[in-house]
């Protein structure tokens, strides 16, 4: 029951932001939910199944563009978000069946190439997407502060949904199978786990979450262009957050997202021109000194304390 309790605490804490916080806090909380959602989504394939996927940016951009194109055709905003999620899930199933038999670096590169191809396809499909000009997404016609709240709650709902799915999956046969695959895929196969199905399922879950978040993001910022939503950083940031919080854990991705956002805000504010360098330095330090995430350090501390007493 413990994870569900933490879930409620997390939701309560987030829901208080629009009540007490100012607009800056609300914006920050929206980004936090966005990051946490991305990290949770990536965790299915990258953390649980142990497949180093860089496809998140592809799903993010795909979701953003599916939703934007449908909105420009006059569909209601909620429908376009759902369509974005479903579209990306189907796309991920097809791509996943093709590239998930690759291992290690090869899989990483294939998933990276998916981002590049999609970006260029969107870039050249000018009739539908406006190409490099980007797309303006019509306003739903409501006051700005109401909008800000709406998108915050949309992001929060999605994050909570992903967190709930994570809890369910990690206790189900699927989660068990994915952990087996990440430890030893051949052994898992011999034990009778349908590895292809499990991997594709994890990839689809990951794509669904990222795409819906991308769709909400597009409606939130109201202008998208290919280099923005297919930015490879959308693939890398979730990875860093999950590494920070702990691979394959339930709350690790959320904790990682919160820490990452805090660092990013501090770095952006204080080192504008060299913020990428500082971020790079942080990543290097993370890999060298905290390879198992901050969660592991805390767990070790508590264990050691328990042993001592």
């Amino acid at each position: 029951m413990k994870p569900w309790l933490w879930l409620v605490v997390f939701v309560a804490a987030c829901a208080l932001v629009p009540v007490f916080g100012n607009n800056y806090a609300l914006r920050l909380a929206t980004i936090m939910c966005l990051y946490a959602g991305l990290a949770l989504s990536w965790n299915f394939i990258g953390g649980m199944a142990g497949y180093p996927s860089f496809a998140a940016a592809a799903f993010f951009g795909l979701g953003a563009y599916v939703s934007a194109v449908l909105q420009s055709k006059g569909l209601p905003i909620g429908v376009t978000w759902a369509a974005a999620g479903l579209g990306a899930t189907v796309f991920a199933a097809l791509i996943g069946m093709a590239i998930l038999h690759l291992k290690g670096h090869y899989f990483a590169i294939a998933s990276l190439a998916v981002v590049e191809v999609l970006r260029e396809v969107v870039n050249t499909a000018e009739d539908l997407t406006g190409g490099g000009m980007g797309m303006n997404i019509p306003l739903p016609g409501m006051p700005v502060d109401v909008q800000a709240r709406l998108f915050f709650f949309a992001m929060l709902t999605m994050t909570v949904l992903l967190l709930a799915v994570t809890i369910v999956v990690s206790r189900s046969k699927l989660g068990f199978g994915l952990r087996c695959i990440s430890q030893n895929e051949d052994a898992a196969d011999i034990l009778g786990i349908d590895t292809t199905f499990y991997k594709v399922a994890a990839f689809c879950l990951s794509a669904f979450g990222v795409a819906v978040i991308g769709a909400i993001y597009a409606s939130w910022v109201q202008y998208i262009e290919p280099p923005d939503v297919f930015d490879i950083l959308y693939s890398v940031k979730p990875l860093v957050m999950v590494l920070l919080g702990g691979l394959g854990t339930i709350f690790g991705p959320v904790i990682g997202a919160v820490i990452y956002l805090a660092l990013e805000e501090l770095v952006w504010r204080n080192f504008l021109t060299v913020h990428a360098a500082v971020l790079g330095g942080l990543i290097v330090a993370l890999v060298l000194f905290l390879p198992n995430g901050i969660g592991a350090v805390i767990r070790d501390r508590t264990k050691r304390a328990a042993v001592r007493s």
Binding site: P52, H105, A108, V236, L239, V240, L243, A276, A277, L279, G280, G281, L282, I283, V284, L286, V287, L288
Partner: peptide
Amino acid sequence: LTLTFGLDLL
């Protein structure tokens, strides 16, 4: 991979 990515950003 992540290490060299971080170094590259830097």
